[in-house]
Amino acid sequence: MMENKTAVMENKTDKGTKGLLVLDHVTMQFGGLVAVDNFTNEVKEGELLGLIGPNGAGKTTVFNVITGIYYPTKGKIIFDDIDITPLKPHQITHLGIARTFQNIRLFYDLSVLENVLVAQHHEISNPDGDRILLHHGKPAKNYQRFWLWRAITKLGYLKKEREMLERAKELIEKVGLAHVMYEKASALPYGEQRKLEIARALATKPKLLLLDEPAAGMNPKETEDLMEFIKKIRDEFDVTVFLIEHDMKVVMGICERIIVMDYGKIIAEGTPEQIQSNPRVIEAYLGKEWKHV
């Protein structure tokens, strides 16, 4: 029993050395504004990484560049040994990166269940993503073809639909939204909307989960729940988590490693303790906050 546990532990640390996502000198420029400047770092498999920095430091832009919403001006992004720099958002999601948004972007007129179901759609309809996977010698995720035809005629489709439904329900129960399964997303309170957005991202079966300010607008109690929740999903769903957060309590409380940005550049990197004592960080960012506390 003990041995087994250490084996698992070792396995985890072993995983921890491998860069799941590598950003190599990524620069994003909008006209004259350099939003992200020479960003070089990596997200290791299994870790819980935080990205902090003052407003306008370029944190969300980093996420947007990773997920393919913006095409970087310079640099390369490697995910799971595949160069995802030129790929489109839907392809990147198919490869295993899912995200939430700073300003919640749910499918408000759809039910909670449907929101989660939509996130599984790429499993039957994303030949683009599969082509990339196959090209890199990885197994495709759409194991059958002609899904549109199947969906309309219902021939050989209902089993898949049932399977998706079961998986969605299971996921919704796991994240604790079962009581609102059939409610419209717009009817949910704020905290649950945030949770649903995470659940929806998880439904794409990601290897890497990007959370953009998950605690924004939450009260202290909700924030505490959220911290537990993030830790829980990291272990239960075996995903790597990369999050942007303004709430220092969250970042310091759950992140194993933190990257600090200011004016588009990385100014510090390290464990929460190291970051808290880093003079540059205090000067650029924490200084102001610390005075308030």
Binding site: T67, I69, K88, P89, H90, T93, H94, A98, R99, F101, R105, L106, F107, V118, A119, H121, H122, S125, N126, D128, G129, R200, T204
Partner: peptide, 9 residues
Amino acid sequence: IAAEAMGIN
């Protein structure tokens, strides 16, 4: 944008 991020082309 969210639809795209959920893997929908």
